[in-house]
Amino acid sequence: MDRQDSPDRPIGAAPGSWAGLLARLVLGLVFVASGTMKASAPAEEFALVIEYYRLVPSADLILIIAAFLPWFELLTGYALILGFLVRPAALAAGAMNLVFILAILSTKARGLELPNCGCFGWGLHPTPNQTLALDFFLAAAAVQAFRKGAVRLSLDNWRGAGYN
């Protein structure tokens, strides 16, 4: 069977696939770190940070978000690192980053001062501008990971799934 791939290139690997792998790994590692630091602390602490944004009216809903969002970040991060369902994971990570960017911009527009962005739980406390810069960078990485798909070192590629 004729193939377009050159003999020394992994099946499905396209030029620039290393960039896709790098984007996937960076994005995945940041999501694992942020999810871990939030999930390892009590949900009430992350709920308190969500309250600062004044975007969610119900205290009960805030607590539900605080309980589940870190685990979703963590699973998304591991999916990206392992290359499992890469495109859906990249889409999820990109969507989360977009939401984080909009949340930060809305606090700036309303003149709210955040004592802590909440991005990394008890860990790092970047300023709102640093957070925005990081979120834009991660959103770009999510786009790159989505575009390239699971071409290298990925479970998707290994099991021949059609997600790449």
């Binding site: 871990t36 999930a39 390892s40 963590l74 699973l75 999916a79």
Partner: peptide
């Protein structure tokens, strides 16, 4: 993957 996530969190929680 869920197991990896749980182990990571438990390790961080200490």
């Amino acid at each position: 993957m869920a197991l990896a996530a749980a182990v990571t969190v438990l390790a961080a929680r200490g």
